[in-house]
């Protein structure tokens, strides 16, 4: 049981898709867990609210885009160790997914995304009849 989940990104931790706004877009970290019934994606996206999170799935392409509203205006950081920007990540999902039943939850800045597999790709135990 293997699923191909691939993505293309450049090596500096930033997303490859270009935006029209002049803002830094970060590539959020993801964990991906697969069971017989579903794929579960866990992503760290601190600062994103549910209304600013856009997830779309089409033809095996999963796109996740989180918009982060600027938290500070015109602040000069005394120490600045991280940048704040939008999140973007996309995956190509090799399995057949039941797109109707995709569900997502966002809690404490962590996105949990459930991708249930279609019935036809679920492993099936084959009964062997003794003749």
């Amino acid at each position: 049981m293997t699923t191909t989940l691939t993505e293309t990104k450049n090596g500096n931790g930033m997303s490859h898709a270009e935006t029209t706004r002049d803002a830094t877009t970060y590539c959020p970290r993801f964990d991906i867990w697969e069971t017989e019934d579903e794929l579960v994606l866990y992503g760290d996206m601190p600062g994103v609210t549910p209304e600013n999170l856009d997830i779309h799935y089409e033809n095996g392409q999963l796109g996740i885009h989180g918009k982060v509203c600027p938290r500070h205006d015109d602040i000069k950081f005394s120490y600045g160790e991280y940048g704040i920007g939008d999140y973007h990540r996309s995956f190509t999902v090799g399995e057949a997914i039941n797109a109707e039943k995709i569900s997502a939850e966002l809690k404490h800045g962590v996105l949990t995304l459930h991708l249930p597999k279609s019935e036809k790709v679920k492993p099936r135990k084959i009964e062997i009849k003794s003749g």
Binding site: T24, F77, G80, E81, G83
Partner: peptide, 17 residues
């Protein structure tokens, strides 16, 4: 990557002050 970095990359969590 124009994020500000004054500390080592492996300190967690990075802080803004």
């Amino acid at each position: 990557d124009n994020r500000p970095q004054q500390y080592a990359r492996n300190t967690f969590p990075p802080l803004n002050l």
